[in-house]
Write a protein that binds this DNA or RNA. Structure first.
Length: 429
RNA sequence: GGGGAGAUACCAAAGCGGCCAACUGGGACGGACUGUAAAUCCGUUGACGUAUGUCUUCGAAGGUUCGAAUCCUUCUCUCCCCA
């Protein structure tokens, strides 16, 4: 059995843990869990950091359980939230939890003997738990004084917190107790914002049964400039290919700054520390080759989207950002071209619409139903700043007629907004 | 309860009768440089647009004026001080 704590320590993935965790983990195969509330239709790369905890946990020989918060998701975790949120509808939660379950199944091994992973849903044991029973069996064991002391609650005392959100920690505490009793789960892990909720669970277990449970949290990943990690300009980076295409996903990792790579490669990849150090050395010698970024982007994209999608994302990136200019684009056969650009947003337009455009502004705005640009002014401003290229060639004026451009394969126009945003216009016959 | 200060675009913050679509800083976006990095420099940043044009903005509603973000009235909210 590998030393899990030591592994995490080397990777800088430990924020905090209760005493004796290491002893417990080294003495026997331990069952540990992390919860994921179905607050969105997909997990995002912030969640990926905690998923990696489970991955390492299993690789070290322990048994990981991923908990889907079908019940807790209905309540809303106040941790890290400065104000009360709206409740999600039942349909949304059902839909979300089904999709999140699918995603989680991706990352762990469910068929490896004793430490096979499991997925559970706290809705299963909460749905028939009556309010009265809950108050008598669970609520009685923790004092409001204790619950009030939690950071997540303290921060909300000024602005207000509903009884519902206040109860969240009790629900999560009960999850831990339930899993402790029914699945022999001794350890709960999570992001550092979960520390308060996790320790409430430990406290509940101790009060009811006198037994000891353990906690371990990982630091929330931040960027070197202090801003939140995991947001691209278009918002969250999701694990769902429909919400963030594998190409966009790959690009996100490829674009991280040199400074951030050291932290990221440790948290999000499974390279050994020796491998990481060697990569870092290579990177330092030839920083322009972006060795670290590539290593991270490749491994993470492959883990999330699979080898085939990674390959496509790489091909697309090479075409769009490689040395090859217009000619290279045209030399690709149509199938390869389309496959490569699968992750690039596309807009379809009929031939007549296309040829009826008087100028570029019209084409990129009204004719494409504002999918590329919201208004002609935006197009003009962008062109004035030199921010638009068509088929990799910079556009000088908005007055160019669309017919002046060569359609690739008589059908496609590759529109580039700025340096990194591509859009494919498909002209239908 | 008494007294005082304030509310301006994504945020912060100037403006206090016309030269204000509104200084400046941050953010965001674009460009140059580079390595699809960082730093730096330049540009854009109410909307529509190209006619140096129109429309809508300065807490809300009214009013004074040829003309108001700027003056007056009422209202709403925020902050500070004294009780």
């Amino acid at each position: 059995m590998k030393n899990f704590i030591e592994e995490l320590r080397q990777r800088g993935m430990i924020q905090d843990h209760t005493p004796e965790v290491e002893q417990q983990l080294n003495s026997q195969m331990t069952v540990g869990y992390i919860g994921f509330d179905p607050t969105a239709a997909s997990l995002h790369i912030g969640n990926l950091a905690t998923i990696m905890l489970l991955v390492h946990f299993q690789r070290c020989g322990h048994k990981p359980i991923a908990l889907i918060g079908g019940a807790t998701g209905m309540i809303g975790d106040p941790s890290g939230k400065s104000s009360e949120r709206n409740l999600l509808s039942y349909e949304t939660i059902l839909h979300n939890q089904a999709r999140i379950r699918k995603q989680l199944e991706h990352f762990l091994d469910f068929d490896c003997g004793a430490n096979s992973a499991e997925i559970v849903n706290n809705y299963d044991w909460m749905k028939n738990f009556s309010f009265l029973e809950f108050l008598r069996d669970v609520g009685k064991h923790l004092t409001v004084n204790y619950m009030l002391a939690k950071d997540s609650v303290q921060k909300r005392l000024e602005s207000g917190i509903s009884y519902t959100e206040f109860s969240y920690q009790l629900l999560q505490a009960y999850d831990f107790y339930y899993l402790y009793t029914n699945k022999n789960v001794k350890l709960q892990m999570g992001g550092s914002d979960q520390w308060g909720n996790i320790t409430s669970g430990i406290e509940l277990i101790r009060r009811i049964s006198g037994k000891t449970a353990y906690a371990l949290t990982t630091p929330l990943v931040t960027k070197s400039d202090g801003t939140k990690f995991g947001k691209s300009e278009s918002g969250n980076v999701w694990l769902d290919a429909e919400m963030t295409s594998p190409y966009q996903f790959y690009q996100f990792w490829l674009n991280v700054s040199d400074e951030d790579t050291h932290k990221l490669i440790r948290v999000f990849t499974l390279f050994s520390i020796e491998e990481i150090q060697s990569l870092e050395q290579q990177h330092a010698q030839a920083p322009h080759q972006r060795i670290l970024q590539k290593a991270i982007a490749e491994q993470v994209t492959e883990r999330v989207h699979g080898k085939a999608e990674l390959q496509k994302a790489k091909t697309a990136s090479e075409i769009l950002f490689g040395k090859g200019v217009t000619d290279a684009l045209k030399s690709l056969d149509e199938k390869t071209f389309l496959q490569a650009l699968e992750g690039v947003p596309q807009t379809h337009i009929s031939a007549s619409e296309f040829y009826n455009c008087h100028n570029l502004a019209e084409l990129l705005c009204t004719a494409t139903r504002n999918e590329i640009f919201p208004s002609k002014s935006e197009v003009r401003k962008m062109v004035q700043n030199g921010g638009i290229s068509i088929n990799k060639q910079k556009v000088e004026s908005t007055e160019i007629k669309p017919t002046a451009f060569d359609l690739i394969h008589n059908r496609y126009l590759l529109v580039q907004k700025g340096k990194k945003n591509y859009h494919l216009v498909v002209v239908k016959d």
